[in-house]
Design a protein around this nucleic acid. Structure first.
Lengths: 200, 200, 200, 200
DNA sequence: TATGAATGAGAATTCATTCAT
DNA sequence: TATGAATGAATTCTCATTCAT
């Protein structure tokens, strides 16, 4: 294989390299020349791999949404108690916070590139959300969708609040509080469940 | 004497009129011409009231942060049970969801205009957060900061998830769940408090 | 005469006040707002007295060209020797150098506002030059136009060189040199004149 | 490989092409669009070679100051009498008068782009003046700085007066007059020198 | 007279994109 | 493939001028 470079592989490498740029400055404020410079190619080359700035951005968006799921699933291996699993999730977010910030900002930007209905129809986004949901469901060992959503919203909320307000909230504190509440809630539910079950 | 205009008053009216535009398209994608057209003045007039696009954007940001606080406090009048108060807050968000979406997107944009340390040092932003915090604290009748943060993150999270994913979560469902958990938690705490802190 | 203000008098006062501004920044770089601010009126008032920026500039130009002649003639009163008269002229320029710099820059600017033929046809400018010429002729007590021109070019040249290069030339040094040369030259001429006169 | 262009060479060609434009209309009155049109490129290309209008103007100024020096030195080759050398210089100016007018107007404009102290500190300008001085010193075969300055101011003055007043002065007439005066002066000086400085 | 708000054409500059090499 | 020179429409912002008060 003398001079064969995997076009697609290289394309993904280029994407990786401009992730930060978009996250830090926003779609509209980043120029193709800046991108080219940042990743060390000419604008011509950039256009050789991506037909347009929009396309580049969307590929970036898709690419990163896809990656997360894999790494996330490794987190819960060999962890058995609920408390540990909740802690593991929140720790995972805490340790990759900077990455989540960036991904979040890129998503916000992505959002403003098209109108709302298109966004909500976006397949990658939907699938990504479902994967996250399943992951959380598995972690919490519940399939009550309300509880899963609750956890996801809480985690998202903490991240967002920290992004905009700084360290006014802490992951571990909230993780413990959530564990406590959840435990009490699940106990309470199972208590009433035994009452109600015969009826349903 | 010149044409009689209350300069400051008119400035605020103009701000109001371009709120949606920024929310829908984002700072960098909106042009001053578009703004001028949208609010029905010439670009010259726009610059008569705002020295630059940045300045206009920041004034917009400040102006709306100021307004929110005022309107929010009216919500909790004459509501007495915890359940009702929680419901009131979530209802309030639900009913003004569109506004919150916009304000949130504008904040995201605002974020990308400056570097992180400047953001976190921003006084308006900080004050705004504290006001919201106090509001929630009052609503929940607790001054446990962890609980207040918990509620704020949850509410923020629901809003953000709905913004990006659509109606995958519902406010009232989450409100009820939260109320349930919180009640159980507070009971539990008061139970242990009497055990552990007989002195205080 | 209760509220009668001499319109024309006021107009001239306004002109005086913006002389420096034009000299320092050049016609095109000065805005009507700047002028208005500098002289302490509103733009509306400015337009009340001058129909346009061009008109203002031309009136300014005319006004100052006119003024000079008057003041200049006072200089030579009661001075009798050639040396003293030459010294007086150069001193006069030296002491008003800043003013001449400004007037010169304004003239340069004026020049670029219209094409060359219009400039050379300008009556004010022509008359002004002739007045200067007569003044110098009277000072040198010669009516040899070549000599008069020589003196005028020299004086102009010194001023211009100093404007662009700083103090690389000094007025008094050049005045003395000029006096010396002129004296020798006039002696020489009168010597040959007596030879030639009978012929002509 | 991109389109092959000697960037620097091409840049200088572009400069040459916009010399007249600046000379005729002045810095502030010429627009980048006009320049681009005049020299046959797009505005984008113009900005590809010059970062800003100011930069373009300054490079223009430097470039032409550099060129002059070179061409000027060819003038005095193989000319031996003082009279001939003086005539040569004045002829040179006369024949390139149009060019000097333009260069002079550009310098005037350059002047109004920055404040006086910066101008006087400008290295190119200073060096240029010194080169001219040396050139004149060599032509007049004197190193008396007063005489050199005298000649330079006279030449500058003639040019400026002709620029603003038209053909009221003639180069050759003034050249002859100057030659006559200078000869008489130098004779006189050498006469007294032998009296006063027998030692040296 | 005097004010300054309003206008909109036009300025400098940027930038996604194309294309000759 | 890869380069970067070239393009020109679009952007932010300015400013002479007008006009209601």
């Amino acid at each position: 294989m003398p001079k064969i470079v995997d076009h697609d592989q290289y394309r993904k490498e280029l994407l990786t390299k401009c992730f930060d740029l978009f996250a830090n400055k926003g779609y509209a404020s980043v120029t193709m020349r800046q991108i080219a410079q940042e990743i060390g190619v000419s604008t011509g080359t950039l256009y050789h791999y991506f037909p347009s700035k929009q396309a580049l951005f969307w590929q970036l968006y898709d690419e990163f949404n896809e990656r997360d799921t894999a790494s996330m699933n490794a987190v819960l291996n060999n962890i058995h108690t609920l408390q540990e699993r909740i802690t593991a999730i929140f720790d995972y977010i805490a340790q990759n916070e900077d990455y989540f910030f960036k991904q979040f900002l890129i998503t916000s930007d992505f959002y403003q590139q098209q109108d709302r209905t298109e966004i909500l129809a976006n397949e990658t986004l939907k699938r990504n959300y479902e994967l996250n949901r399943d992951f959380v469901a598995k972690a919490l060992e519940t399939d009550d969708p309300a509880v899963v959503n609750f956890a996801m919203c809480l985690a998202t909320g903490i991240m967002v609040v920290r992004l905009f307000e700084g360290n006014v909230v802490e992951y571990d504190e909230q993780a413990q509080l959530f564990h406590k509440m959840l435990t009490l809630y699940l106990q309470d539910v199972s208590l009433h469940e035994s009452d109600e079950l015969p009826v349903s």
